[in-house]
Design a protein around this nucleic acid. Structure first.
Lengths: 121, 121
DNA sequence: TGCAAATATGCAGCATCTTGCAAATGTGAG
DNA sequence: CTCACATTTGCAAGATGCTGCATATTTGCA
């Protein structure tokens, strides 16, 4: 009865595709509707080649679908439920600690970039 | 406003922990209640050292919690919702194709292991 | 104390993923 | 047909993850 192991592998494959911040952000963008590669690349501030590679991965796993419009390739979520389901995971993740940590970093950076009169300490 | 990127990274970290069939099966086992390492290792047919490593990872990300009982270490899900949420992903994954593929493999294996009278072909 | 069971940890080889860049392909406009 | 734009693909180096095995560490018991 290897079905348990097979299902686990299938799920693990899915999770591996989602285990990358850029790809998650792509899915989040596509949640708002169809987008072409250049638009996505601008939104994420990434080179189009990288975005294209990520999209190829997601497409290979049937998470997104593609259609051509003129010389653009327009992508959309194959199953919009995917994006909803991902957001359901937010309570599982310790976002608060990370945001606070980022704010500390921002604060530290602000101190560095705007040194006071007696910056010699 | 890097909060979007931060949340994406946090989610990606979570997905990375879940992107391994053994760890998913561990979570599935723990869904049914507390288990010690040896029991888990037997259930998954894995060496205890491997199970221990997986559990250490999951524990580092606060997905499981540990308690000692005699000389055993008993693990439990930190947030039982995790297991439910994972199962919600099943419709997103093409399990059917994989199961059929596995059945084809089984069928092929059966043909090989039980060769007919004219097996030379 | 000393032994054995239960877990955990360290490490090296291997596999996989990521990244940046260059080059190739495809496609509409003139 | 040719050009320019949009997208994809190929590749090598570096980073990260996995596996198997050996060795610690911890704890209960005699």
């Amino acid at each position: 009865m290897p079905s348990r192991a097979i299902v686990s592998r299938a799920l693990a494959d899915l999770f591996r595709q989602l285990a990358h911040a850029d790809r998650l952000r792509l899915i989040e963008e596509l949640r708002q509707g169809e987008r072409d590669v250049t638009t996505l690349a601008q939104a994420l501030a990434l080179p189009t080649s990288r975005v294209s590679q990520h999209l190829a991965l997601l497409r290979a796993h049937r998470l997104v679908e593609e259609r051509r419009d003129g010389r653009n390739h327009v992508y959309r979520l194959a199953q919009p439920f995917l994006a909803d389901w991902i957001l359901e995971a937010l309570p599982l993740v310790d976002v608060r600690a990370r945001l606070e940590e980022a704010e500390h970093i921002d604060a530290a950076r602000a101190l560095w970039s705007a040194p006071g009169p007696n910056s010699s300490h």
